[in-house]
Design a protein around this nucleic acid. Sequence first.
DNA 1: CGCGTCCTTGAACCGCGTCAAGCCAGGTGG
DNA 2: CCACCTGGCTTGACGCGGTTCAAGGACGCG
Lengths: 238, 238
Amino acid sequence: MKKISCDICPNTNCLIKKNLISEWSDIVEKDKYQAIYKKDYSVFSAGNPILGLYFVQDGMVKEFILRPQSNIEIVRFANNGQVFGHAGYENNFYTFGADAKIDSIICFFENSVLEELYKINPKLLYDLMLYFSNQHSESTYRLMCISQMNLREKIASVLYYLYAGFGLNSENELPEYFNRDDIASLACTTSEQVSRQLSDFQKEQIIDKRARKIAILKPLALKSIISDYLVMLKPAVI
Amino acid sequence: MKKISCDICPNTNCLIKKNLISEWSDIVEKDKYQAIYKKDYSVFSAGNPILGLYFVQDGMVKEFILRPQSNIEIVRFANNGQVFGHAGYENNFYTFGADAKIDSIICFFENSVLEELYKINPKLLYDLMLYFSNQHSESTYRLMCISQMNLREKIASVLYYLYAGFGLNSENELPEYFNRDDIASLACTTSEQVSRQLSDFQKEQIIDKRARKIAILKPLALKSIISDYLVMLKPAVI
DNA sequence: CGCGTCCTTGAACCGCGTCAAGCCAGGTGG
DNA sequence: CCACCTGGCTTGACGCGGTTCAAGGACGCG
C-alpha cells in the first residue's frame, strides 16, 4: 500500500475527488494528511475532539459506540471513497469511535482546510449537505428495521446489506473479515442468535456456511424476506 | 393565526431567519409559500415527490413512517423554527409522511429557490450541512437507545425527550396533545406497555397522571434512569 | 500438537407483545 | 342536567421470541 495524491486516486465516489478543481490542487496536496492504519488500530475514540473529516482511501473502517458495561454496538462500515468521522456540530467531541477493520489508508482534512475548500468550490459543501441528509434517512430507515423486524428479518437484512454494500468474492462469499459478532452488532442481537439463524438459512439453502466464511447463494431470497420493508428505501439503495 | 414575513418572525433558531440578509428579501418574500394546516391534516405523504424544504413557523408537525399492515411509527416531532421534509438526495420521493399535530403555520421553499439562496449566502448551506450532520448523530443515538434499553429506560428517555424538547405548562404538565400512542411510537413499544410503565412511575412519584395529561414531577429522576446512555449525547442536548 | 478464539447448540428463563375486558373522561343530544 | 356513547386509557393473563448461561466443537496459529 502506498500513499497517493488525489489526482491518481481511483475513488470516483469520493466527495473530494469528485469536486477536484485546479484551484484546489495546492491546498489539497499540501494540507491532506494521509496515514496507514493497521488492522484493529484506532483512528479516533469517543471523547476525542472533532478536528476534521476522514476519508477512506483504501481499506475498511468500522464506526462503533461503546456501551457502558457492555459489548460494542456497530454503527456502520465505510470503505473506499467514503466519509467518516462526522458528528453533529463543530467544536464538539466524538461520541463514538472508529477502528480500522483491515489495514487501511485514511485521508484526513482539518476543519479549517475544509472551510477553505468550501469557499473556493461550494459544490463540495452542497454534496456534503446531501450526503449527510442521505445518511440521516438511512439511519432512520435502519432504526425502523431494528425496532420492527423479528430476528430472521434482521439477520436477512444485515446479510443483504453486506452483500449489496461490499460484494462477494469469486466464491460468492462475503469478505471474511466480517465475523458473527459484526453481524450480531449490526442486527442488534447476540452472536448466538446469528449462529442459529445462519444454520436455518443454510437448511433453506439461501446461504452456505464455509467454516467462518459465508457464501450468499440466493441474495433474492434474502431480499424477499425483507420485502415488506424495502418500499421505504430509495430505489438507489435497493 | 396570521401569515407573517420573515422580518417579523420570532423564530431566531430558524435557519432562514438566522441567515437573512438584505439581498435575500425579494426572493424570500416572493417565493416563500406559507400555509395553515389544521390539526391532523397531511403536509405530505410517503410517495410524494420531494420538491423543497418545509419550516414550522408556528405549531407542531409529526414525521412518521407507515409500516405495511401495521400501525404507525413516529420518527420525530418538529416545532417552531425547525426544518422538516428533508430526505436524502434530490429528485427523490418521500419515504415517510408528515401531519400537523396541532393547527400550524408552515413555510415552504422550492429546491430551485433554495439553490438561489445558497448562491447568494453560502452560510445557509453550511448551516444546513451542520444541521443534517447533527440530525444524523441524533438518529444514531436514538437507534442505540431503542436497540439497547429496556422498557423502563425507553419510556423514561421519551418522557425526558418530550420534557426537554417541548417543556411543561404552568402545572408541570407535558403538552396535552401528546397521547399514549405517541409515547409508544417514540419508544418503539405498545400503548399498553406505556400505561403500565406510567403507573409504575406514578407509584414512584416521578410523574403524576392527571386523566390524559402527564405531569413531570421529578425530571432528574428520569434523567438518572437513563444516565448510562447520556454520556453519548452532546452536552447541548442533555 | 496444543492452545486460544471463534462458532455452534441446547436448555431455562423472562421480558415484552398480544388479546381481551373493563374503566374513565369528555362530548353530545335529549 | 343527566344518560349515553365514543375514544382513549388501564389492567390482567397468557404465550412466544429472544436473551442468557453453559458446554462442547471447529478452526487457525504458533
